[in-house]
């Protein structure tokens, strides 16, 4: 066990998988210099044939990676900001995610699309969004959103070894705040579809992922001082979604709050609220469900305004109080 920064954990995962399997190669815009630094130094280590800088054209570079994956390579594409993934929506949604089904298993698409995501830097409308929700409905597209260095490494290594495409969202705040924590030594793999209970509690279940896990833990700590016991469940991958662990927690607490950085309309919170209202899950609830998410407006640029937009521990505490009222 070693203390590792979130960003370094990502770099380690890429390096280890490139060492392990020479089918793995990276491509993206300016990944040799690397905007955040995640891929910096890898070109020197593995050569520019396996760390490929591309012209600016997201749809094309995902298409190129798709073609390489169809030929048995294991490309890892970087989209510089998750906002730009919408430029590649055709390749991601129509081609990458659905090719294996279309050809009934003749082809696998072992392709990872990494994208730094999220706000908190006053970068404004087009460099701050959490775009996972846009892709959430796509069939055939697992979506991983690590919240810790250990998961950043373990989920990325699992993604690269998967025979299916993976959309992998790395939160920029977790990268740039130098968040660090223990990462298990050796070949650390984290399976998809297995939620982690980040903090046990008995009064309310908070589902949080990505950068919102830290906000949930801050809220839980604050509320513990007020005698409220919060359980924090981090699904780690929102597709596939470990509903079993989430609703096992709700069965215990009978209260459900979902916090996500993406906009509230049609997000994971909406999906979980619908699942909670359906079938046997309905009878687990003792109180209305609360959702904490960004409002359905563009991301404002100024810090003060952005903070008003972004969900955080304070807004979560208010929601938890409402569900306990």
């Amino acid at each position: 066990m070693a203390v590792v920064k979130y960003m370094d954990a990502l770099t380690d995962a890429l390096r280890e998988e490139m060492q392990r399997d020479d089918r793995v190669f990276l491509l993206g815009e300016d990944i040799r210099v690397s905007n955040l630094g995640i891929t910096a130094g890898l070109a020197e280590e593995f050569g520019t044939e396996r760390v490929v800088d591309t012209p600016i054209h997201e749809n094309a570079l995902v298409g190129v990676a798709m073609g390489a994956a169809l030929e048995g390579m294991r490309p890892v594409v970087e989209i510089m900001f998750s906002d730009f993934a919408l430029l590649a929506a055709d390749q991601i949604v129509n081609q990458v995610a659905q090719w294996r089904y279309m050809t009934q298993g003749q082809y696998e698409v072992p392709l990872v699309i990494r994208m730094p995501t999220g706000g908190g830097f006053a970068y404004g409308l087009h460099h701050s969004q959490s775009t996972e929700t846009h892709f959430f409905q796509t069939p055939g597209l697992p979506i991983a959103m690590p919240s810790t260095p250990a998961d950043a490494k373990g989920l990325l290594k699992t993604a690269i070894r998967s025979n299916d495409p993976v959309l992998f969202l790395e939160h920029m705040l977790l990268c740039l705040q130098n968040a660090e924590s223990d990462v298990p030594d050796g070949d650390h793999l984290v399976p998809f579809g297995e939620a982690a209970v980040r903090r046990e509690g008995s009064d309310v279940t908070v589902v949080a992922f990505g950068a919102m896990v830290n906000q949930a833990l801050i809220a839980a700590e604050t509320l513990a001082e007020q005698g409220v016991s919060v359980e924090v469940v981090d699904p780690r991958t929102i597709v596939p979604l470990d509903a079993e662990t989430i609703f096992a927690s709700v069965a215990k607490t009978n209260r459900l709050v979902i916090i996500e950085e993406s906009r509230i309309r049609g997000g994971l919170g909406a999906e979980l609220a619908a699942q909670a209202a359906a079938g046997d899950n309905f009878f687990l609830l003792d109180a209305p469900i609360e959702r904490v998410a960004a409002p359905n407006i563009p991301v404002p640029s100024t810090s003060q305004l952005e903070q008003a937009y972004l969900p955080d521990a304070g807004k979560l505490i208010e929601a938890i109080h409402r569900t306990l009222a």
Binding site: R74, P110, P142, T158, R161, S162, N163, D164, V166, P191, F192, G193, V239, P240, L241, D242, A243, E244, T245, F247, A248, A251, Q275, G279, D280, N281, F283, L284
Partner: peptide
């Protein structure tokens, strides 16, 4: 009595 929880989504196949 504890309620049965729903079955999770299937996992991607690992290489």
């Amino acid at each position: 009595a504890a309620d049965p929880a729903p079955v999770p989504d299937s996992l991607p196949t690992a290489d």
